[in-house]
């Protein structure tokens, strides 16, 4: 049975590929390929009926973004999704700091749902959509 939506907890953080992409340049293909993604547990992907590379919509109470789904390569982490830090992850992070300056980068609820056929915006497209600006 395929579920329409996955309710999960999100963690954002570093990956080495995102780090390499970031150093090559935020406009680089490597950055786009490695930051505009969400890692999901294998079992959760099966529940959603999706495969590696399929666009999914990640939604929190702070925002929503379309990124590509990737299977988390090690161990299991059902109910947990991971997004590499970057512009795409920030679209769902909140600015509440609990009076400590630190925004919500980790450990808050999101929903993930398949978004077949929908485009994963490039850095410049997403900047334009979110802030109405570009070069």
């Amino acid at each position: 049975m395929v579920d329409q939506k996955l309710r999960a907890t999100i963690i954002t953080g570093r990956t080495i590929d995102q780090g390499v992409g970031k150093e090559l340049g935020k406009g680089s293909q490597e950055y786009y390929d490695n930051a505009a993604v969400v890692f999901l547990d294998k079992a959760d992907m099966m529940k959603l009926g999706i495969r590696n590379g399929v666009p999914v919509r990640v939604t929190s109470k702070f925002g929503s973004v379309i990124v590509k789904a990737r299977k988390f390569p090690r161990g299991s982490m059902p109910g947990l999704v991971f997004m590499p830090c970057g512009l795409w992850a920030n679209a769902v992070c909140g600015d509440a700091t609990y009076s400590m300056g630190m925004p919500m980068f980790k450990g808050f609820p999101v929903e993930v749902e398949p978004a077949p056929g929908q485009p994963v915006l490039t850095l410049d497209e997403l900047l334009k959509e979110e802030f109405g600006r570009g070069l």
């Binding site: 702070f62 970057g86 512009l87 802030f131 600006r133």
Partner: peptide, 28 residues
Amino acid sequence: AHFPKSAVQNMMKHPLIVINPDLNCISR
């Protein structure tokens, strides 16, 4: 690239000066 969207949106309401060697998100 490292602040939540809403924080950057608020930053954009006022003039923004950026000093960076390359065109990262905030430079753009």
